[in-house]
Design a protein around this nucleic acid. Structure first.
Lengths: 183, 183
DNA sequence: CAAGAATGAGACGTCAGTGTCTCAATTGGT
DNA sequence: ACCAATTGAGACACTGACGTCTCATTCTTG
């Protein structure tokens, strides 16, 4: 069977986001391939992590494009964004939790660019009056990442149904847990 | 200077939550002590992690007690909970992200007990009509952990002011990002 | 069906991190 | 000021993971 590079990386992300000290052998097993094959495609652990960063940035660059963050209201764009992010949620969880990586790297740049797009989205929502102004765009961005990661883990552990992924994130992020009188 | 065991563990958690592959030497430096001293107090890396689990569970057991989760409305209790959790937010972040640890351990039990208390709090809020019923208590629990961890990191990185910690978490968790018409 | 490419399993040397030890320096209590 | 306890720094051997290699097997392509 031909190795699906991206799928291997996704499996690696799912494992490493939960057990970042996992052995290369464990990563290989988690991806269903041999350790030798893993080394053939990724020179070493560093290269693997670098590849995870690259894939993550590329995937979310595409996801953001597909979500058309500039179209419609910010709230609508946010819904599309979460939907587009779902397939790569575990990858995002890994990148967010392991940002030891962003130390003097140029990867920092790619990530900063993504960050800026999300932050700008929230800011636009604030300017249009749809998003609260007492919560900073930077915090809302972090919170979005955190909720996506948390939900991805909850789904992995079976505490949240996969089909509820988008709903749980969007509803909590936008509406909050408190039950409003109206509605 | 006498070594402050708990402070060392807190420093270790702050580092390990962001760089879980950190060396014992790096942990020691982060805690401002020598590697030998670190080994004197914690037999090894496993023992260190175990100590982090123990401290975390103990701290949050106390924090939950102090928050008096059964008194007043669930929303009020939740505010107290976040306030009590703040000093140990980085510790929580470590425990939540590195739950590889919970594999056949008895630590699982301590954590499950804490989990149950938070989940029960959200459930109580739902029964009292203050919390939305379309978001499961299990998810709200995970989301709370995630937001606390995310905010702790954001504060560490300077993206959120430390003084806004409680406000950012509580307001987002309870009220959501969307700006409601009334209010 | 045959030739080429890719994979899995295992063996092997290497090395960074670990855990232990010693000893001088510092600290804290009396 | 003294003594006991603790610490930091360094040296040391050891271990587990890493990275490379080989070879038989499987998969792919024409």
């Amino acid at each position: 069977m031909a190795m699906d590079r991206d799928q291997v990386l996704r499996d690696a992300a799912a494992l490493l986001s939960r057990k970042s000290t996992a052995t290369m052998d464990e990563v290989a097993r988690a991806a269903g391939i041999g350790r030798a094959t893993l080394h053939r495609h990724f020179a070493g652990r560093d290269a693997l992590v670098r590849a995870l960063e690259d894939l993550g940035i590329r995937e979310f660059e595409v996801a953001f494009d597909n979500a058309r963050l500039d179209e419609g209201t910010a709230v609508e764009a946010l819904r599309r964004l979460v939907a587009e992010a779902e397939p790569n949620a575990e990858l995002l969880a890994f990148l967010v939790t392991e940002n030891q990586l962003f130390e003097g790297d140029e990867v920092n740049e790619g990530w900063a660019r993504l960050d800026a797009r999300v932050t700008a989205l929230f800011r636009r929502g604030q300017e249009e009056g749809d998003i609260r102004i007492d919560l900073s765009p930077a915090w809302l961005t972090e919170a979005l990442y955190g909720l996506i990661g948390s939900c991805a883990w909850a789904v992995m552990d079976g505490r949240v149904a996969a089909k509820d992924f988008q709903y749980m994130i969007i509803e909590l992020l936008l509406g909050g847990a408190r039950r409003s009188v109206e509605k």
